[in-house]
Design a protein around this nucleic acid. Sequence first.
DNA 1: TGAATAGTGTCTATAAGACAATATCCC
DNA 2: GGGATATTGTCTTATAGACACTATTCA
Lengths: 252, 252
Amino acid sequence: MSKGSKSQQSEEASFLSEYDPSIYPRPSVAVDITLLAVRDGGLVTWLVKRREPPQRSRWSLPGGFVHMHESLHTAAARVLEEKSGVQGVFLEQLFTFGAVSRDPRTRVLSVAYYALIDVHRLAPLVEARDGVLIGEVVVPWAEETGGPAEVRRADGRALRLAFDHAEQVGMAVARLRGKLAYTPIGFQLLAECFTLRELHAVHEAVLGRPLNKDSFRRRMLSSKELEATGDQQCGVEHRPAALYRFRRRSAT
Amino acid sequence: MSKGSKSQQSEEASFLSEYDPSIYPRPSVAVDITLLAVRDGGLVTWLVKRREPPQRSRWSLPGGFVHMHESLHTAAARVLEEKSGVQGVFLEQLFTFGAVSRDPRTRVLSVAYYALIDVHRLAPLVEARDGVLIGEVVVPWAEETGGPAEVRRADGRALRLAFDHAEQVGMAVARLRGKLAYTPIGFQLLAECFTLRELHAVHEAVLGRPLNKDSFRRRMLSSKELEATGDQQCGVEHRPAALYRFRRRSAT
DNA sequence: TGAATAGTGTCTATAAGACAATATCCC
DNA sequence: GGGATATTGTCTTATAGACACTATTCA
């Protein structure tokens, strides 16, 4: 159904055969991934220690250069897997950071992604690697104001992240907060089956503020996004809660 | 307050002096801008006719390559001004499109931006240029579902946009819809002073659905984002409405 | 039985939708 | 005065927050 005439097609072909992409200087393009999980009522993120300059030995987000033959999303998934072992999680583009001097080597753009994972999947992955840290994410702003996040060690000490990675983490938190209310994204931070209490705790951790329990319950149960598994929690020393599962939309 | 030791700094310096960025192939990076306005109850966007291959003579969003010495935002503002004459408008990054073969020349990433403008500012700019079209934007989906937009001529005929520009326009509409409810973004599509009816019409055009007039009125007046100018509409053949102005937040 | 959390029912406050009534301008 | 839209006020309905009460499990 192409409307182009034959002569137009051959014009395009001859143009392409003569096109030399090397005449203009081009920036390098990297991807950085903020992998978020909920632990102990707060958000945490996966950091790696830089082994090479620039900013060697500083903690940073997992990142790497985009290859010429892969899409940005593919690059982000590859880099996340290489640097953390995480596969098959929610992964979404966040923002492209393009300040002129954000990297001292040369012009480097960073296409920032964020990923979400059930925290229980992280422990074995951390043990399998060196130079890895699960940092606690604290944002000094409310709601979705935005701005850099602070990332702390287990002992509470704040870390200085490499490059603009503190900005990237902050933006990931802001985006996640924004999407939580109107998209089924909270489930990505839990195992397949979960209780309403666990879902409630995840939402509170993401939003950084208490949520009314009753209203949250009603809202979730009437949202048609939850499906009762019929099973119950076990191994708890109180009344076990019903387990739910995220109901995938038929269109997806 | 840098924590790095002197030897670490010199290590970094020597690394940088020996770093050769040309050893890895790099993609080209462009910006494309979806300039949106509201006209006759619907959204419109600014298109330019491509004068060079690839896809010569097809309508496209204003776009251009990012220079090495400018940030992405600066590049977007520059390209928008060059291709449309528009300056000083709301401009925000949308998404980076990175499919491997989205441009037949070479690997080209497109950092998509969208901009908002009062439609009355467009007419003189269109007249000053050739190969320019204000296209009517129609999205075949509801709410914020997302997906490519359709762009039509004045006679209703649909245009085939170059590259992935239909996707970019669709994403701009989806983003705008999402931000309309909870950020003061609708004002960007109006002149400095406006009536509540005009603001109402803008919201309806963006969302693509009717909005309850009374409730909209109440919501806006109680939002503290509006400031009465004290003046009234003039030149209308009915009771003139009060004029309002967007109240900039003191923090901004 | 008691501790602890799950789950239900009811009241209240707030915001949105519907709609009627009045106000103000130009012709 | 008539036409047209602005503006105000009231009633109804939906939803969130608050809180009391009952249910179920394990130690």
